[in-house]
Design a protein around this nucleic acid. Structure first.
Length: 596
RNA sequence: GGUCGAGUAGCUCAGCUGGAUAGAGCAUCUGCCUUCUAAGCAGACGGUCCUAGGUUCGAAUCCUAGCUCGAUCACCA
């Protein structure tokens, strides 16, 4: 039980005792004491004033006295303008610290017998390389999966690759026509980049055709529909759906190139999946479900044969589920895929990491699933994250303003290298060690930069301004960890001994006390981050912890302390901090080096 | 036009289940390396929390309206 809980429960009991009043626990508001006052936890007296009908100061005094008397955890109190500030006993914090030392994976909850959560993220198209938007998606997805796992749920990470459709045919057709049999091997180009080039090429040629038709007097919308290239890719898609050999093999070959490219991007980014779904294998799913829904009169059919879900009761537009020709749409396939996944894996819930441009889609998807009678629909989550904008606005592939994922990672690593060399820190490293370190530092700067922002908010990225390595950044946290490791190495105290260092509470330094308080917040932060799907909470937490440690490091000497017991205590405290830093950073998908 | 989301320091972001004088980092300026890694620490400067009302003992936080920006509303995916 946390200290806030202890205080809240005891406050309820003391109010009963002192004023003979039954107060609901929810009326008791505790918060961290404002740093400009003395204390750790503050009970806000105002909500109680109305019930007790006495002056805030008087209530605060009586309550404070009663809490000090009844709780060994509370050593003193003061009352300031209706705020009862409680000072938590040093012994309580020391004991919390000893508990932390004893726990195996501090803050983590066992997943034994837990519910299973499926998390879908990444979901790229196979017609262009991954860009900054995907980077945010991937990093959030990976991190949320780690966090949810740490919070005590089983997690299955899945990717749904959009490998078919009219947009995929565009790059295929362009390559067929203008490709001259180019391959990744023949050009030395990464497969996803090569295919992406032809996607862009198609668009360019298509625009020329449209312009020609418009110049010839045709309406623009009509021109877009009737341009020869448009007609050709529609024909190509039909062939693909009919299983035409030539089309299918071209498709397989080009998708294969793309997958090779993705593989290296994912690998460098450090994300992976337990299962990869391909839309070419799932796009026909959902029809039976829709037909059953029609039979059960949950859905309606129009005269032309098309099937719809009537959402007017929920003040939304009707949603098409089957076209008049019987073919399905995106929504249909999502319905089918969801149902199949819940059956296959006995899921408790499902999280879709998808940008907020699809808010409406998921709202409707979950609503229709509910209408169709799947009661797990209420456990479905759309983890809707904001777009990454550039100073110039939205990224647009056709205008060449897209920030490429591979380029971005490479630049970060290059910057890490330049910074490290400038600081001259790595002189004792071998070339290979140094190269590995640049990778770890560069990627941490990037990942932390993205993950520290609340997923729900849109974020701004300025390619001209390089991402910082000082202050609230990944490298800063890594640096703190490396400093600790350096001390641990020099201390040369067996981990076993460290676990049992007890000190008198009057020797506890203010900064040590603060560190223990911050450490003991970790389990709560993990739970909160898991329930809100927010890696940003972990990022903010670990930054706080690193800052606290650096203050401690500055304020007291660790190895040069005369009192050997204190040396060992500080080393063990440092060790715990380094473990929690490492653990938090792992939840963010970020490595921490022992030296830097 | 309907719906949804966002507007906090020069910049990037915290804080939002209502609580004390709204916090960090960057940038600018000032100190601290003969002492465990200065990618650090300490300090200064910097605010009509978009605006106007309302609820409340108390509002950046909740409600209403407006302004600005974004997304979305296809027999597209």
């Amino acid at each position: 039980m946390g200290i806030n809980q202890i205080i809240e429960e005891s406050t309820v009991a003391q109010i009963k005792e002192l004023f003979d009043l039954d107060v609901d626990r929810s009326k008791i508001v505790t918060q961290k004491t404002n740093p400009s006052f003395k204390g750790d936890i503050t009970v806000v007296v105002f909500p109680i004033v109305k019930l007790v009908k006495k002056a805030p100061q008087e209530i605060g005094d009586q309550l404070g006295q009663a809490l000090v008397n009844s709780l060994t955890e509370i050593s003193a109190y003061n009352v300031e303008k209706g705020f009862l500030n409680l000072i938590v006993a040093d012994d309580y914090w020391l004991n919390s610290f000893y508990d932390i030392r004893k726990s195996d994976e501090f803050g983590f909850v066992s997943v034994e017998g837990a519910d299973t959560v499926m998390i879908e993220f990444s979901s790229p198209n196979t017609n262009k390389p991954l860009h900054l938007g995907h980077v945010r998606n991937n990093l959030i997805g990976h991190s949320v999966a780690e966090i949810v796992k740490a919070s005590g749920k089983k997690v299955i990470k899945v990717n749904l690759v959009n490998d078919r459709g009219i947009h995929i045919c565009k790059s295929m057709l362009a390559w067929q026509r203008w490709g001259n049999d180019e391959t990744p091997d023949s050009t030395g180009k990464k497969g996803d980049k090569l295919v992406g080039d032809y996607y862009v090429r198609f668009d360019k040629e298509y625009k020329v055709e449209i312009q020609q038709l418009v110049d010839g007097g045709m309406d623009k919308k009509q021109a877009e529909k009737e341009a020869p290239l448009m007609l050709e890719i529609q024909e190509m898609l039909r062939k693909w759906e009919d299983g035409d050999d030539a089309t299918r093999s071209l498709w397989s070959m080009m998708n294969g190139w793309v997958y090779d490219g993705f593989k290296s991007t994912y690998s460098r980014m450090g994300v992976s999946f337990d299962k990869v779904y391909y839309e070419s294998e799932t796009y026909l799913l959902g029809k039976e479900i829709v037909e059953k829904g029609l039979k059960d009169s949950v859905l309606v059919q129009k005269d032309d044969g098309s099937v719809w879900s009537d959402l007017s009761a929920d003040k939304l537009d009707d949603k098409l589920l089957l076209r008049s020709d019987g073919t399905s749409v995106y929504m249909t396939q999502d319905l089918g895929t969801a149902v199949q996944r819940f059956q296959d894996f006995s899921l408790y819930s499902m999280v879709y990491v998808v940008g907020n441009e699809q808010d409406y889609h998921f709202k409707v998807l979950f609503m229709i699933l509910g209408k169709l009678g799947y009661n797990w629909a209420e456990n479905m989550v759309h983890l809707s994250y904001g777009m990454v904008d550039l100073p110039s606005g939205k990224m647009k592939s056709r205008e060449g303003t897209v920030v490429d994922a591979d380029d971005l990672m490479e630049e970060m690593v290059e910057t890490a290298k330049a910074t490290s060399e400038e600081l001259g820190k790595l002189d004792s490293f071998s070339d290979q060690e140094a190269t590995e370190l640049y990778e770890i530092i560069g990627l941490s700067a990037l990942k932390y930069f993205i993950l520290k922002v609340d997923p729900q908010k849109k974020m701004l990225f300025d390619p001209k301004e390089s991402i910082d390595f000082n202050g609230n950044t990944g490298p800063f946290i890594q640096y703190t960890h490396a400093r600790i490791c350096s001390i641990l190495d020099k201390a040369n105290i067996a981990e076993k001994n460290q676990q049992e260092v007890l000190i008198d509470s009057d020797k506890l330094h203010q900064k040590e006390r603060q560190l223990i308080i911050t450490l003991s917040n970790y389990p709560g932060i993990i739970q909160e981050a898991a329930s809100t799907f927010s890696p940003a909470l972990i990022a903010n937490y670990v930054y706080e912890l690193a800052k606290d440690y650096n203050q401690f490091y500055q304020a007291v000497s660790i190895l040069k302390e005369a009192d050997q017991t204190l040396v060992e205590f500080r080393v063990s405290l440092s060790s715990s901090v380094s473990q929690v830093i490492k653990s938090s950073m792992r939840l963010l998908g970020i490595d921490v080096p022992r030296r830097m």
